[in-house]
């Protein structure tokens, strides 16, 4: 039984063609790399995987990665909320310039992000001699890693929140304020529930990037094994030592983090259908 197609419907051959092309593309670009990580990690059984993940250097990398995210994500959350409140709920001169500046870290290579902190805090940098004199270490130490991570994740929360807050206008907030609510109460009771999807998704993406950042962190880290190596740097070290099983075991750990992030987003889409498609 064939029925007449509506003019906006594609004929079956086109549907099939598009779907096959998309399936092949996603299979090659997404599914195979993902399968490669887990199957390479498990190629010698589960024991070497557990050994690689519980090695002291790996555990130190886990700690440093968690600490970095624990600082970078709240900083970006505070920035994102402040920036979106100022930009989306107020009108002022230079607003579009401010939005462009917020997006700036997206168009800067992660390596350049690391480089700029080396130029400010490194031994040859602006503050280098002063820091050296006071025995403070930022480059080739944890503070540099945290700073570089904050830079590369800077726009994440703001970028999710600004369009959502702008779309919602200011009527609800003005009503709340005119009824006597304080600024903070207005944000937490009126605005935040309306933008919860963007707030949570921004934090999730920010966290995934903070824990997974490689380029910027590799420039400022100095790769002191077990001291200034985050998980992605630990992966690189193991890989460059031809310890493929170990590298992919630790990479598998990071993969699980990515999959958990995607799963959390899928759940959010189910329970908060008001969330919108977006660019990260």
């Amino acid at each position: 039984m064939s029925r007449t197609l509506r003019p906006s419907e594609d004929p079956i051959w086109l549907r099939a063609g598009v779907l096959v092309a998309v399936a092949l593309f996603m299979g090659v670009m997404i599914a195979l790399p993902l399968a490669t990580v887990f199957l390479t990690a498990l190629s010698k059984g589960i024991d070497p995987v557990i050994e690689a993940i519980t090695a002291p250097d790996a555990l130190a990398a886990v700690r440093l990665t968690l600490m970095t995210a624990a600082i970078a994500v709240p900083v970006n959350l505070v920035f994102g909320v402040c920036a979106s409140w100022a930009v989306a709920k107020h009108d002022f001169a230079g607003k579009s310039l401010l939005i462009s500046l917020i997006d700036l870290p997206f168009s800067v290579s992660p390596v350049v992000a690391g480089l700029i902190y080396v130029l400010v805090f490194g031994l040859q940098g602006w503050l280098g001699p002063w820091l050296e004199a006071h025995d403070l270490h930022i480059i080739f130490a944890a503070p540099g890693i945290v700073l570089a991570t904050i830079f590369v994740t800077f726009p994440f929360v703001a970028r999710e929140l600004i369009p959502l807050m702008e779309a919602q206008g200011v009527d609800a907030e003005e009503a709340a304020v005119s009824l006597g609510a304080s600024g903070l109460a207005t944000f937490f009771r009126v605005t935040a529930p309306n933008v919860r999807w963007g707030l949570v998704y921004g934090v999730l993406l920010c966290n995934a990037r903070a824990m997974g950042e490689f380029g910027a962190v590799s420039v400022v880290s100095g790769r002191i094994r077990g001291v200034t190596t985050t998980l992605p740097l630990h992966v690189e070290i193991l890989y460059s030592e031809y310890n493929f099983v170990g590298a992919f075991a630790v990479a598998g750990l990071l993969c699980l983090l990515a999959l958990a992030t995607l799963a959390a987003k899928a759940v959010m889409d189910l329970v908060w259908p008001e969330g919108r498609a977006h660019v990260g």
Binding site: I30, L205, P232, L233, V235, A251, C255, L257, G280
Partner: peptide
Amino acid sequence: PFALPTAV
């Protein structure tokens, strides 16, 4: 690709 660390 947004969520997966680039080194991985």
